[in-house]
């Protein structure tokens, strides 16, 4: 037997085998965006309609693999209130359920560790214009270091009331549970915040279900014959754990209906997550 020739044949064989293996692995691991056809969309709308579910929004068509994200809640406790607001002023403090309440001057602050609420009553708001009210909210946010970068802003002006809502986002995905709101009218100013101070994407990405599948889950969830109007369907992250300040948030499809209810469908498993 020609051992040298045999080696050459084996080298070529293994080289070809390795290339094939490499290409197969690359193909398996390559993320493939899923697209819905026009026919698919039509069929979905039909099924939803048969179940008294009307879509008043477009169905997002492209989805890409998403990882879990590690989130840590921003902490609002007694020391936060004392250092940033009360300082050396006289104040009254008491407990009400899970909240610690501070009262000083005409102001009230409520904290429970993961959420912050501020209330101020004053005549100074009486003569403020809408833009001045808006500016007051902005200044409050800046002065007390509440300002955030990754936000989606929504401004609502209704009569004498000006409301500015900030929703936490991360790489264009919403982070459910991360929000702040400033509300001001002629008599008082209110501000609330619940935020994730740290949001870090993990490495391993995983395919997510498409929006159509999530919408069809509504048929399963809906138990009555009442009309349900879907206002929005959006992909983002969900961390609904009141007894935890850190953990992993999971990708979800958030379906918002016209009456304000929210449904969360796990974008990995397609299962309904708790909470409305």
């Amino acid at each position: 037997m020609n051992w040298s020739k045999a080696k050459t044949v084996l080298i070529i064989t293994f080289a070809i085998l390795n290339v094939l293996l490499y290409l197969t692995i690359a193909k398996i691991n390559k993320p493939q965006p899923q697209l819905l056809s026009r026919q698919d969309l039509y069929s979905i709308e039909e099924v939803l309609l048969q179940n008294n579910i009307i879509l008043k929004t477009t169905i997002p068509q492209e989805t890409e693999p998403m990882p879990l994200v590690k989130v840590t809640r921003e902490i609002f406790d007694e020391s936060f209130v004392l250092e940033n607001f009360i300082k050396s002023q006289k104040y009254e403090k008491y407990k009400e359920n899970r909240y610690t309440i501070f009262k000083f001057e005409d102001k009230t602050i409520k904290v429970d560790g993961i959420s912050f609420y501020y209330f101020e009553k004053s005549d100074k708001f009486k003569d403020m214009s809408s833009s001045q009210k808006e500016e007051y909210v902005q200044n409050f946010i800046n002065n007390y270091h509440f300002k955030e970068i990754n936000v989606q802003v929504e401004k609502i002006s209704q009569g004498k009331e000006v409301k500015i809502k900030y929703f936490q986002t991360y790489k264009d995905y919403f982070i459910d549970g991360g929000w702040m709101e400033g509300k001001i009218d002629d008599k008082s100013f209110e501000f609330s915040k619940s935020w994730f101070g740290s949001v870090v994407m993990e490495k391993a990405k995983k395919e997510v279900i498409n929006a159509a599948y999530a919408l069809l889950k509504l048929v399963e969830i809906k138990t009555d014959a009442k009309l349900m109007v879907v206002k929005e369907i959006k992909l983002g992250y969900y961390f609904n754990w009141s007894s935890a300040t850190k953990g992993e948030a999971v990708p979800v499809w958030r379906i918002t209906t016209q009456d304000g209810n929210r449904y969360y469908i796990n974008a990995y498993t397609g299962n309904f997550e708790e909470g409305k």
């Binding site: 995983k206 961390f239 007894s243 935890a244 999971v250 498993t269 309904f272």
Partner: peptide, 20 residues
């Protein structure tokens, strides 16, 4: 387990869940 998320509760407990 690739869809299981980990949560660290304030009490020190660790929770793993896939939503169901």
């Amino acid at each position: 387990i690739s869809v299981v998320r980990k949560i660290t509760e304030n009490s020190g407990c660790t929770v793993y869940t896939d939503g169901l």
